[in-house]
Amino acid sequence: MDTARAYYERHGTLAAPRGAAILDVQVGQWLTNIRRPGGLGKDPMRAERRAAALAAIDPDWNPAVLGWTVDWQRHYAYLTQLLAEGVRPTAIVPGVTRHGEDIGRWLATQRRDWDRLSEEQQRRLGELGVTKAPRARKAAAKMATAAGPRAGGTAFLKGFEALQQYIAREGVLPGRAGVQEMPDGEIRRVGVWLANQKQRRDKLDQEQRAALAELGVDWARP
């Protein structure tokens, strides 16, 4: 248990990948073995004591009983840690890592595939402020039909198109460095464009702000 405790103190979770090692011990393989049926030993009382000792370190040490994978639990734990350290949810974009895991990309996948998650997974993520990714195509269609000639001209429409494609791809709003490659190969600096829209939000008309709000842009909401 000392090895498990040492791993938890460093990583904040016992959802270790199989190849993880600490204190010269292959703790990942050891945890994989004990999670298997009968892995805690044949003696029921001893197995119960060992399970209790592991739960005292990490209540979610065996994610299978919760209905999801060790990989999901590990990413969820790292996301929780990032948020607890004060990282803004909007800043956790693809490329943001913790202990070598791309938490931003994982988060984008959870938001995009929200309906595939269990109710408990949705509840846990919801408590962290994570929500389902907006339906970018629906927002784009509304923008095209409702905004019409008042959409702000070609520049706004081009930026909006890039934004909705970026969200469809990544599942999150872009940071300032975000870019989107369009079907014709053009690279659009969608993160800079969105930051510029925020600076000039008082000049956006109602349709523009409504379309941005439906894509999940909080500052565009009434």
Rank of each mutant, 00 (worst) to 15 (best):
Q29L: 06
L82G: 00
V96D: 08
A55N: 01
V70E: 13
W61H: 06
V96R: 10
R105S: 01
I103G: 08
N62H: 15
E85K: 10
D58T: 09
R88K: 13
A6H: 06
L125H: 13
G95A: 04
L83S: 11
Q26G: 02
R74A: 14
A21K: 07
R36I: 02
P89M: 10
Q26R: 13
E48V: 02
W106V: 10
Q73K: 06
A16M: 12
A77K: 00
D58R: 02
R111G: 14
V65E: 15
Q122D: 00
R35N: 12
E48I: 02
D71S: 14
L23V: 06
Y76D: 09
R112P: 07
Y76R: 14
P89W: 03
I34H: 05
R111E: 06
R88D: 09
W30L: 13
P63F: 09
L82E: 03
A51K: 06
I22E: 07
Y7H: 09
L14Q: 04
L117D: 03
E119H: 04
I57Y: 02
A108C: 14
V96W: 06
R105E: 11
N62S: 06
Q26P: 07
R88A: 15
G28F: 03
G12T: 05
L128I: 09
I103P: 09
T13Y: 14
G104K: 05
R49T: 15
T13G: 10
Q122W: 01
A84S: 15
L14C: 13
P37I: 00
R116Q: 04
R49D: 14
S118P: 14
E127I: 01
R124T: 04
A15H: 02
L117M: 09
I34D: 03
G129D: 12
I22N: 01
G86W: 01
A77R: 01
T69W: 03
R111T: 14
L66A: 07
M45D: 14
Y78G: 02
V65K: 10
R74N: 13
L83W: 08
L14K: 03
Y76L: 15
I57R: 02
Q81K: 11
V65T: 14
P59V: 07
A91H: 14
A108E: 01
T13I: 07
A51H: 02
P63V: 09
